[in-house]
Write a protein that binds this DNA or RNA. Structure first.
Lengths: 266, 266
DNA sequence: TACCCATGGA
DNA sequence: TCCATGGGTA
């Protein structure tokens, strides 16, 4: 028996919006710890890791560990039927091949339940090792999204370079080149506009903008995004989910084969 | 000679928006009583009935009963040229095969007139008998629209069931099932958020969501919608038009042939 | 399916 | 006036 009651249902709606473009089908794993998901994107290049801790739910009952395979598009369709202020409850009976989403309007005058068939999905639960990163950039998520979108109108890949002074996003394409530098700025009054760079050593890595732009679908979840970089490790783009956990996107850097292609900063 | 002056011209604009998706051509009937229309939708499944009473017009002159066939798309195009605050006057000379729409801006600084050709349309004016309904549901129109839209992302038909406790909207589709229950709530402070159910006997009827979604184009006309249900009678979905009349949509229930298809609430 | 634009609400 | 949402287009 599974019953998870989430007062701020809009969180789950946003989470689905952030994931569904990247992943078609995935197993949601439910344990006493929380509600989590780990899945490769459909082209097996990027990895998504979601955690919603049990403490973030108003009510959390999970009698035994369970893995529920869902089609994220269908799940997303159903969650779109929840109001943004609705309380969402996820329910599954033991041994059932369906999951039920229940939506309660704030006034309790409208109660909806949506039942969805579960799927069998080969789960490939990768252990993600804790790693030391050469550099960790924390910046406003909207700014990062804007940069990725802007650069993708010029080129296909982005070089992210971190030095003491700041983080540089560079691309090059047929029509020209682009470099966007964000300086560290901790001094702003508003912490939600700070850009903070922790750097152990300089790093410069290249990524496909297509995936970065998918990752930025997580922007509505948090004002800030954290980008963790190490040479020869996948980048981690993380959006914290208030009081509950996070959604993390992993993407391996492009191997820099050709000097011309790898230094868009020209 | 016909001359109808409507100070709140936006009403007529909204009426057209509500009808034009459903009906292509229709006769507007004008008499001393008011300005009215009755038409089947283009697939001859649903019926629209509109009444704008003469008292709702600032000036209403209609020397003799007249029926004017109009292409609603063209009429709508013209009405879109009226500002939302404009005063609209509808004019037709006796024996003329055109109708003129005149728009006056609130400041009187801009006066437009649009002349449109009339059409000959076979009118099939059905008498709509007054009927007793098993149940009448009055609820916020936006909520009804939201429900129809949400359910149509899951299935093609909706079962509307009324009991003392509330009204239930159910559907089923390939990806699962959905049930939305709205409880009666007369106690809210704001009458525009009340859901009121008058029930003589329980009723459960199935309708095509496609038409329901067309009907909800009437939402901008009124905060509230009234849904009148009886077994073996067409449902009536009514939007009152302030001070003037109403727009009513009629749709026959689907005959429930197969138990499996007709009880989406599973 | 993803992006862009237009529209309606806060 | 700005933001968010929904519909249309590529």
């Amino acid at each position: 028996m599974l019953e998870l009651r989430l007062v701020q249902g809009s969180l789950l709606k946003k989470v689905m919006e952030a994931i569904k473009d990247l992943v078609n089908d995935a197993n949601f794993d439910c344990s006493a710890t929380g509600f989590s998901l780990q899945a490769m994107d459909s082209s097996h290049v990027a990895l998504v890791s979601l955690l919603l801790r049990s403490e973030g739910f108003e009510h959390y009952r999970c009698d035994r560990n369970i893995s529920m395979g869902m089609n994220l598009n269908n799940m997303s369709k159903m969650l779109k039927c929840a109001g943004n202020d609705d309380i969402i409850t996820i329910k599954a009976d033991d041994g059932s091949d369906t999951v039920t989403f229940m939506f309660e309007s704030p006034t309790q005058d409208k109660i909806s339940d949506f039942e969805m068939k579960l799927m069998d999905i080969d789960s490939e639960h990768l252990g993600i090792p804790e790693a030391e990163y050469h550099a960790i950039v924390r910046m406003p998520s909207a700014e990062f999204a804007r940069i990725c979108k802007d650069l993708s109108s010029i080129g296909d890949t982005v070089v992210i370079s971190v030095s003491k002074e700041g983080v540089k996003f560079s691309t090059r394409g047929d029509i020209g080149t682009a470099n966007i530098v964000c300086r560290q700025n901790t001094t702003v009054d508003k912490p939600e506009e700070a850009t903070i760079i922790e750097m152990n050593e300089p790093v410069s890595l290249t990524f496909a903008l297509r995936y970065m732009n998918s990752f930025t679908k997580g922007t509505p979840l948090s004002n800030m995004v954290t980008i963790s970089l190490s040479s020869e490790l996948p980048v981690v783009v993380e959006y914290k989910i208030a009081e509950m956990g996070y959604i993390r996107f992993y993407l391996a850097p492009k191997i820099e084969e050709d000097e011309d292609e790898t230094r868009p900063q020209a």
